[in-house]
Design a protein around this nucleic acid. Structure first.
Lengths: 330, 330
DNA sequence: TTGTAGGCGTTATCAC
DNA sequence: GTGATAACGCCTACAA
């Protein structure tokens, strides 16, 4: 159906010059003006487009101009923002991003990492799902690796993380300052690094911990909130993640207690300011997370051989009302 | 610093067989069991990984196992979901997705389309930003193209779109059924296909149109809402997009009129059910949009040469309260 | 069934 | 500065 794509050879023939001249012109070497012009005309006429994959294969630096991003789910707005930050930086290095979602499946993660490196990406940014990333050890020699959101396990590599511990402390202390002593923590699966850090931050500031973990849907969080309120009567809730915050907010609203029980959520939720009360949160900076990770990666790609670095991005408390409720005097 | 990557040749030497034998084994041709085993051992020992880019170059079908997605902004949750849908389908075709954001800049769109095809993606899915996509005409012969969310202009190509017209009609009629006659429409830039279609749907069902367009931030929408309410006293609002819905909801809440003025938004907003009242919306199906677009693309890649198709994905009215408010009797 | 040789489209190294 | 030629890593006739 479609014609064969024009190659450099076709351009050379049409322009009446040699292959090498075309290559040079296409790569920006001016050369003799009249020849350059003839080449350019032939390129336009044929609609010639250089084959970057062939170019990569032959080039000395073997750079493909693409990086891989291996995360758990691109559909998650948090990671979508991370991707956006990465793309912003990649653009300045004229690199494109190949994305893949592991869906928290370690086997998929391994498989995807393999096909990404097989495609000869110049570097890889990873949100690890598995408990052991040592399978990347061998590849680390050939392709720079940067971990994001969660640190590498059993592997030495650069990492860019949110200040989960500090953020949770910030939230807990905010509630303490507002007079609460019975503060409950609702968290995600305890095996997740981020969840564990947030729990640790909470525990470090609260004297009587009241903890419920391993919640990973808004529904389970909603049910857990009801149970917690019924059985332990906390005056404040600290929720360790997006969906948990939503579940807890639903539960509070169902009980009509959204103005009586304080709530601080980790991770921002959209429209949180429109609710009544607005939900106070500890916000992460996903775009910045992506930017920093990409910056580190390109530094490595460009030859930085320094010791591995772990960067921590600050979190910010955003007061909107729900976190400033004081406990009812008895 | 790092060793050269092992090649097929290295594997062949170590296994004591020829290059082609390695190639066959690596590509799944069993051959003589003992040789296959020797090859496999050498592969494991060296940590050999086939170079997919070189493979593509030489292979008969020249398939790279990657597709390009060119959209306006991956950071936008709507498009993040679209991407997720695409990835789901791409996975079943063992293809990876390269994403790029044009930021609504036609020049960037052209440039990105060029580098994507130069990387020899097997196909391209595009959310067009420009007013004229005919620049893709030449490439269409070499790489399948599918448009998504917005139709191609001055170019004949497959498209997968939301039912913007029908959805807006649905919303307007829902309000009419609840007794409203003064329904205002707040829309995005009128040059956007989606915005124009939604406006058209609204106009087709309302007798006295009250229209404000070219809003593209929550802030401008908020201001426009105040102005509209002050000057024209509508009893219901139909907002043409995510951010506009949020801006309008803010304005209503500021005025304390969220229980008096009806509101239906186009495009779902997260947490809309937690507000008081919940926001009634016409929801799109971004994941499905992505799936269908990817399905069409792979059909083309696999040789479908039928006439171009335009698929429309249904929208759904989700009642949550704000759209069921009746006009106050005078 | 295995090995040999040629070439995919490009860049790098040479003579000229 | 230009042009011929040899790779890059792999696949695929074809011959053995």
């Amino acid at each position: 159906m479609a014609d064969r794509r024009p190659t450099m050879k076709d351009v050379a023939t049409l322009a009446g010059v040699s292959l090498s001249t075309v290559s040079r012109v296409v790569n920006g070497d001016p050369g003799r003006p009249d020849l350059a012009k003839r080449v350019q005309e032939a390129v336009d006429l044929l609609g010639y487009e250089r084959d970057l994959t062939a170019s990569t294969l032959r080039r000395a630096d073997r750079a493909s101009g693409s990086i891989g991003l291996l995360l758990t789910d691109v559909g998650n707005p948090f990671f979508a923002s991370v991707l956006r930050g990465i793309e912003d930086v990649a653009r300045t290095h004229s690199s494109m991003t190949i994305v893949a979602s592991s869906d928290e499946d370690p086997d998929r993660e391994r498989a995807l990492a393999a096909t990404l490196t097989a495609r000869r990406v110049d570097g890889l940014i990873i949100v690890p799902a598995g408990m052991d990333n040592s399978y990347l050890q061998g590849r680390r020699a050939h392709v720079p690796l940067v971990f994001i959101d969660r640190p590498p396990r059993y592997l030495d590599a650069d990492a860019v993380l949110s200040d989960n511990y500090g953020g949770a402390r910030l939230a807990a202390e905010h509630l303490l300052r507002h007079g609460h002593t019975r503060i409950a923590f609702l968290g995600d699966r305890h095996t997740l690094h981020t969840a564990a850090e947030r729990l640790r931050g909470y525990q470090s500031s609260v004297t009587e911990p009241l903890v419920c973990t391993d919640l990973d849907t808004a529904e389970s969080a909603e049910a857990a909130t009801h149970k917690l309120l019924d059985e332990h009567a906390p005056t404040a809730l600290l929720t360790g993640q997006n969906l948990i915050t939503i579940g807890a907010a639903r539960a509070l609203r169902t009980r009509g207690e959204q103005h009586r029980i304080a709530l601080v959520g980790f991770d921002d939720v959209p429209l949180a300011d429109l609710l009544d009360p607005g939900i106070t949160v500890v916000a992460q900076q996903p775009v910045e997370l992506g930017r920093q990770a990409a910056s580190r990666l390109f530094a490595r790609i460009d030859g930085d051989t320094g010791p591995t670095q772990s960067v921590t991005i600050a979190t910010q408390l955003v007061e909107r009302g729900s976190g400033e409720i004081r406990p009812a005097s008895r």
